[in-house]
Amino acid sequence: MARMLNQLTGSSESSVPNFGIEPLTGANFASWKDQLMLTLGMLDYDLAIRQDEPAAVTEQSTREHKAAYDRWEKANRLSLMLVKNTINLSIRGAIPDSDKVKEYLKSLEDHFKGSLKALASNLMLQMLTLKYDGSSGVREHIMKMTDMANKLKSLEMEVSDNFLVHFIMTSLPARFDTFKVNYNAMKDKWSTSDLILMCVQEKERLKLAQPESVHLTTTANSKKRKGRSCNFGNKTANKVPKTNPGAVASSSNPLSGKLHCKFCRANEHT
């Protein structure tokens, strides 16, 4: 990292490292900006974005003022070089040039406003249609929806925490209905962290209760099968020719003990 910083400080724009930032191609503006701002913050070069340009240095300027201006000027120059180095050349030519990184980023945002609106619409559609399948991790499901809400906030579409909690509740399947009723009866409001904790506990409770219900169902079905009688032999006996009335009870009857229905053979009935 130190070598890259030295290279960035003393190199021309064409050789500025991009620190792994995904190049801006158009459709990835939101993710590109997130990576860019994170990198600039780690390098402490976001000073020129967070603060306005200080007053120009004059002969009457104090040493502190000169030092502050030098820090801002360096941050502005290097951050602008990094921003331009991570933009596709075809896009860079369509953006009005500026010697201030804050103004340059504003021009970029104005250029991609249509893409941002499309991204916001897509995120809203995903949130509306996303449902928890009940088998995967409920924690991951809630965090995924929270991430969508945070992305909408970054696109200036505020999603309140209370609305997000209720929205996540509607995405849970019917097996969580009792859990939802209990939540609606409470006066306290939950945060997303509280919701994650409660949903994980509820899923574990449902998982523990499931084997018992399966056992009860299986036991009930087994009792029904044991109490079931087979009339196949009786029906066969009725079909024995009248000329041999003792064939039904005779052990020499070839039909005796051999003709059984599928149910009897499956349950080893005789």
Rank of each mutant, 00 (worst) to 15 (best):
K102F: 03
Y104M: 03
S115E: 15
K106I: 07
V101E: 03
S107R: 05
E109V: 10
D99T: 09
G134P: 09
L82V: 12
K113N: 09
K84E: 06
S98Y: 05
I87N: 02
P96I: 01
A118W: 07
H111Y: 12
F112T: 02
D97Y: 05
M81Q: 08
S98P: 04
G114E: 13
L125F: 12
M81S: 09
L123M: 14
N88C: 10
Y104T: 06
K131G: 12
N122R: 14
G134Y: 04
V101S: 00
F112G: 02
R77A: 11
P96K: 05
M127G: 15
L78C: 06
G134W: 06
L105P: 01
L123A: 11
L82F: 06
M124R: 14
G114A: 13
R77Q: 07
R92P: 00
S135V: 15
T86S: 15
S107F: 06
S107M: 04
M81P: 03
G134Q: 07
A94P: 00
L89A: 08
S121Q: 13
L80P: 02
L125W: 08
D133I: 10
K106T: 11
L116Q: 09
S90P: 00
D97K: 09
S90I: 00
R77H: 12
K117M: 12
A120N: 12
L78G: 04
K106N: 10
D110G: 07
L125P: 01
T129Q: 15
L123N: 11
S90G: 12
Q126G: 13
I95P: 02
E109R: 09
L89M: 04
I87R: 00
K113E: 15
I95Y: 03
A94Q: 08
S107G: 00
D110E: 07
V101R: 00
I87E: 06
T86Q: 05
Y132F: 15
Y104W: 09
D110Y: 02
S90F: 06
D133Y: 13
F112Q: 04
L80I: 05
L130M: 15
Y132R: 09
L123Q: 12
G114H: 09
L128K: 15
T86F: 05
L108E: 03
G134N: 11
S107P: 00
L78A: 04
P96Q: 03
M124T: 12
D133L: 09
L108K: 01
S121E: 12
L116N: 06
N88Y: 05
N85T: 10
K100E: 11
Y132W: 14
M81R: 14
V83G: 00
E109L: 10
N85Q: 13
L105W: 03
L105R: 01
E109I: 08
L105M: 11
A118H: 08
L78S: 03
L119T: 14
T129P: 07
S98Q: 05
S107N: 11
E103K: 09
E109M: 04
D110P: 00
K84Q: 13
H111V: 02
S107V: 01
S115H: 09
G114R: 12
I87H: 03
L125A: 15
K102T: 07
S90L: 06
D110A: 11
I95W: 01
R77V: 04
T129E: 14
I95V: 08
S115P: 00
S98H: 08
V83H: 01
I95T: 00
